[in-house]
């Protein structure tokens, strides 16, 4: 009978954690944005966005290069290497840009957010904010949430742009695909609304989920070294799984049903 009790307890824990996560986000976002929070948000955009640029650019470049190489070997069998440009661009804009950026963001910025907020809790900084009559949800959570929401779509677009340039480097400069067809077929195939905007929407959804999980895991962590390390790991695991699962749902909604 123990396992039945265990299932019940786990379910209750999950439901109550979801409730707490919802309340936390509600508490952080219900307040009208205050002018005092703007510099804090800009600082967080620097921390979670600008400082993630290096990993995003390097990953984007390599993924674009690998895609061009793989795509070329397959397309050339059919004499269709002219379609390399749209293949690289569509894969990046629709899928790899938002998804890989979200996964990298979870590992690079999400884990840092969880650890930072968890340590603020462990060192009583959150309690001391409350005792100073400053709401930690508005002061700590809200700026980090908005920074994540602002940064991730921009990082995803940068990732795709660099990936397309990486594809050009391998496909055109190395393997000799015609530069004109690489760009012009890409231009005529890629649709602004269907491909670019849908990619940005995906990225916004991932930003919401990853940032929310990261902040909540830190805010709700057990304030010990073990608790924070566990929370950090959970942030990366949960947000990666959520991103991959949601990607399927969003892809089905956006591209699956014509």
């Amino acid at each position: 009978m123990n396992w039945i009790r265990q299932i019940g307890r786990t379910t209750l824990d999950r439901v109550s954690a979801t409730g707490r996560a919802g309340l936390m986000l509600f508490g952080a976002l219900i307040a009208p944005p205050s002018i005092k929070n703007i510099p804090l948000t800009i600082k967080q955009v620097y921390v979670v966005g600008v400082q993630s640029l290096a990993i995003i650019i390097v990953s984007g470049l390599f993924i674009g290069m690998v895609m061009a190489l793989q795509g070329y070997t397959i397309l050339t069998d059919y004499g269709a290497e002219g379609s390399l440009g749209p293949m690289v661009a569509l894969s990046l804009l629709r899928e790899l840009g938002p998804v890989v950026t979200a996964l990298l963001f979870a590992g690079r910025a999400g884990s840092a957010l969880t650890a930072e907020i968890g340590l603020m809790k462990a060192t009583e900084q959150l309690s001391s904010l409350e005792m100073m009559a400053v709401d930690p949800l508005r002061r700590v959570v809200a700026p980090r949430f908005w920074a994540g929401m602002l940064s991730m779509p921009m990082l995803a677009l940068i990732f795709s742009a660099v990936g397309i340039l990486g594809g050009h480097l391998v496909g055109v400069d190395w393997l000799g695909v015609d530069a004109g067809s690489y760009w012009s077929i890409m231009q005529s195939t890629v649709d602004w609304d269907k491909d670019v905007i849908n990619g940005v929407i995906k990225s916004l959804v991932f930003a919401l989920v990853v940032t929310w999980i990261a902040i909540f895991k830190g805010y709700d962590s057990i304030p010990t070294s073990e608790g924070i390390s566990q929370a950090t790991t959970q942030t990366v695991v949960f947000s990666s799984l959520a991103v991959l699962g949601l990607d399927f749902v969003l892809t089905a909604l956006m591209f699956g049903i014509e």
Binding site: T123, E124, Q125, S127, S128, M131, M132
Partner: peptide, 9 residues
Amino acid sequence: MSMLFQSGA
């Protein structure tokens, strides 16, 4: 009111 935390915080 204010509070001095053990760790300083």
